[in-house]
């Protein structure tokens, strides 16, 4: 069954990576390692029994850092992509179903978000002092805040593709007779949108969501690389790259491992998206 394996491979790779990331505490317990513990006597350690892939510039175990970083990168990617999909689906459904002025308004909003110079905006957003926005200090100053911040920022920036896609699907679906039949049964606008139109648009939405996971992970690593994303000591593949850039010639492994992992995850997300499109869309040929 080489064909089936080829189709399942991208999903399998992603599941395997997620399982590895989830098993980080097991690894840490087995080797007796704290991923954030600094040991300056062990800087740039070579691979050994105690540190299978060696240590980084602060003497932290590289395997533990990669696993922890994978947890962050994958979960940020997943949650932000879900958020972007939810926002995009809502906006696309409303614009496509009601049409007219609301459609024009929402689509100009979408165009504006696409046209925004994203990176400068994100740099500004990432620098916002949350306590001034009324976020409780306990949350605003906790270690995890950079995590929430980046999920929200990337989610708010990447819903546009899904919104345009869902609007297009909705425009086509609302002309179908079963929508007229549902309205004829007394169904209200929101029932028609969510019970009748949304399930019919689910296939392209799933494909778009899968594709956006890869984009979001890439985005997260760019932001973290620029020092605007996940803040140390929390590891993410993006900020591991940042710290590795100074030693790229003396200790290239520190840059290669997270870089290759980002490549593998993004490539497999895109492959999985394409495979899903091929197998879910009855119109696609050559299956």
């Amino acid at each position: 069954m080489p064909l089936l394996w080829g189709r399942l491979l991208p999903g399998g790779v992603l599941v395997l990576l997620a399982a590895l990331a989830l098993s980080a505490p097991i690894y840490e317990a087995a080797w007796g390692i704290d991923p954030n513990a600094v040991d300056l006597s062990q800087r740039y350690g070579q691979p050994s029994l105690t540190h299978p892939l060696g240590t980084d510039e602060l003497g932290r175990d590289l395997v533990a850092r990669l696993l922890r970083g994978g947890r962050v990168s994958l979960s940020v990617g997943l949650v932000a992509a879900l958020m972007a999909t939810a926002i995009g689906t809502m906006i696309g459904l409303l614009a496509g179903y009601f049409g007219g002025k609301l459609d024009a308004l929402l689509m100009r909003l979408t165009d504006s978000v696409i046209a925004l110079p994203l990176l400068p905006l994100l740099i500004v957003l990432a620098a916002v002092d949350l306590t001034k926005l009324g976020v409780p200090a306990a949350i605003a100053q906790s270690e995890d805040v950079s995590l929430y911040r980046i999920v929200i920022i990337t989610g708010l920036a990447s819903w546009t593709t899904v919104a345009r896609l869902v609007r297009g699907e909705t425009l086509a679906l609302r002309e179908r007779e079963f929508v007229l039949a549902a309205i004829g049964q007394g169904a209200g606008a929101f029932r028609v949108m969510f019970v009748h139109i949304f399930p019919n648009a689910l296939t392209p939405i799933i494909v778009a969501a899968t594709l956006s996971v890869g984009n979001v992970i890439l985005f997260e690593s760019v932001l973290s690389f620029l020092g605007l994303g996940i803040q140390p000591p929390i590891a993410s593949w993006g900020n591991m790259l940042t710290h590795a850039q100074e030693t790229i010639w003396s200790a290239p492994a520190l840059a290669i491992y997270p870089g290759v992992l980002i490549l593998i995850v993004v490539a497999n997300c895109n492959l999985l998206g394409d495979r899903l499109r091929d197998s879910l869309d009855p119109r696609s040929v050559g299956r």
């Binding site: 179908r176 007779e177 079963f178 007229l180 039949a181 549902a182 004829g184 049964q185 019970v195 009748h196 399930p199 019919n200 689910l202």
Partner: peptide, 16 residues
């Protein structure tokens, strides 16, 4: 008031 349409296949939602 209720209505029955001409083509039952297109009047039924294919995924419900």
């Amino acid at each position: 008031l209720a209505m029955i349409f001409q083509d039952p296949l297109s009047a039924l939602n294919p995924v419900v």
